[in-house]
Amino acid sequence: MGWQWFHRLGSPRWFYEKTNAWIPWLAVISISLLVTGAVWGLAFAPEDFKQGNSYRIIYIHVPSAFLALAGYYTMAISGAIGLIWKMKLADMVMKSAAPIGAVLTFVALVTGAVWGKPTWGTWWVWDARITSMLVLFFLYLGVIALQEAYQHQDTANKASAILALVGTVNIPIIYKSVDWWYTLHQPATIKFTSESTIDPSMLYPLLMMVTGFYVFYALVLLMSTRSEILVREKKTRWVKDLATQ
């Protein structure tokens, strides 16, 4: 009885209709958080005494890097669910999560490079954190490529789920890279186990941006999954009715 929701998730149509009303809410919440957070971070948060104004890139660099990693969990876990329970919806989530994660990893890498120039004097270094993030980017690209590489969707899903699961080895490496190796990249700013190394006047807009990115991620993953549902179910009555009504 308690598992009914889980079985219902097996029905893409049920999921599509259920989530209809969520989209506008997620859109309004994420856009207002992102706009407020960006204005706060750009104009009202104090200047950093060491890095000057270039540090303001933190307000997009850190949230996008967070979501690049969280997006990888989402992709790998839904891949595993699809592999174990043969759930169609989970496979669609995995497929949708790959390009979103790739874009967010790209944003983290590019903003990091642009931040590196005035701060370290270089756009790029082969340092442990940055290299492991680049590997993450290639893992995302690998999943996207595998999705396109097979005639049969089931084979494509299996192959990309396995790649996603094997690639999770990279995640702890990314987290720990700044502690394990001597790197140019600064250590974590926000810590859950001890005091954060950032002043509250800079932390609050950062937390707002992180929350905004999380909600935004939920929004685009949902939008993307819903479009994918329509593509895969395009031969069914309900999708035809949706298109022609």
């Binding site: 960006a38 000057g52 997009i60 390009p99 944003v107 685009v220 819903r226």
Partner: peptide, 25 residues
């Protein structure tokens, strides 16, 4: 104070990428 091009370029690239994520589905 001199960091403008870096900061604004980062925000512009991010805005374009996020907009792409909304528009493509």
């Amino acid at each position: 104070s001199g960091h403008g091009p870096y900061v604004w370029a980062s925000y512009a690239i991010t805005a374009v990428c996020l907009a792409y994520l909304v528009v493509s589905p």
